[in-house]
Amino acid sequence: MWNGWPLSRILLLFTGAAFLMISLQVTMYHYRQNFRHWAMYGPVFGGPLLGLLTIALAFYNVPVLRSITGVMLLVGIALGVAGGYLHFNGIGERVGGYGEAQNFLVGPPLTLPLMVTALSILGLIALYWRPTI
């Protein structure tokens, strides 16, 4: 099945699966916090959408799907950066703020939104990858 698949197609499939897995974790974390901030809904709905779009694109390479996925991956970058900012501020709002190392362990996970950014960038690389060989 994998014979003949270009690297970009495999990366799109991996990116989609990773988005779906991370979205499950994000949903559990935000549900645990009772969606206290309206921005918590962004990755809960955007993550699975990005996952499904990139997986669909791995199997059906049509121009309209490529365009929609490209725009949504840019939105994913923005969601990840905004989430990183909000999570960093959330750590500072805990008792003891940034000076308390425990806040980085039990507060909002700082790396999870940055993973959304990294996966979105990986998806864009896979989407626009043109091998020179």
Score class of each variant (00 low, 15 high):
P6K: 07
L112I: 11
G96E: 15
G97A: 11
Y128P: 03
Y128C: 04
Q33E: 15
Y31F: 10
L79D: 09
L110R: 03
R94H: 15
R94W: 11
M72C: 14
M28Y: 11
V75C: 13
M1D: 09
G70R: 11
S120C: 10
Y98Q: 04
G47L: 06
R66H: 06
A82P: 00
L112E: 10
R94A: 11
L119F: 14
L122D: 02
I22P: 00
Y60D: 01
I10G: 10
H87Y: 06
N34H: 09
L13F: 15
I55D: 06
G4I: 04
I68T: 10
I91D: 07
W2P: 01
G92I: 02
F35H: 03
Q102A: 09
N3C: 11
R32C: 05
L7K: 13
N89C: 13
L79K: 01
T132C: 03
S8L: 01
L114Q: 15
N3L: 13
M21S: 07
A101D: 12
F35V: 01
L24P: 01
Y98P: 03
T15K: 03
G47D: 09
N3K: 13
N61E: 15
L65C: 05
L119R: 05
T69W: 03
H37E: 15
V106M: 14
F19T: 01
R130V: 10
M40N: 02
L13M: 14
W38F: 08
I121N: 02
M40R: 02
G16A: 04
S23N: 07
L50C: 10
Y41W: 15
G16W: 00
L122M: 12
G83P: 09
L50I: 04
F35E: 00
P43I: 05
V64Q: 10
P43M: 07
L50H: 05
R36M: 07
L127Q: 12
M1V: 07
I77D: 03
V75S: 07
G123H: 05
L86A: 14
A17Q: 12
N103A: 06
Q25E: 06
L114P: 07
P108N: 12
V81Q: 06
P48R: 02
L124T: 05
G99T: 07
G16H: 03
L79Q: 09
L13S: 09
L112C: 03
L73E: 07
M21W: 06
Y41T: 10
G70N: 06
T132F: 07
G96M: 13
V64A: 13
G90V: 10
L122Y: 05
I121G: 05
F35R: 01
P6R: 13
I10K: 15
N103T: 06
L119A: 02
F45A: 14
L7G: 10
H37Q: 13
G80I: 04
M28P: 00
F88A: 10
F19Q: 00
R9S: 12
M115G: 08
Y98I: 08
G84A: 00
R94F: 08
A118I: 13
H87E: 08
A17P: 05
P48G: 04
A56T: 11
I55Q: 04
P48M: 04
R32T: 09
R66W: 04
P48T: 09
R9I: 14
V95M: 14
L74D: 04
V26D: 01
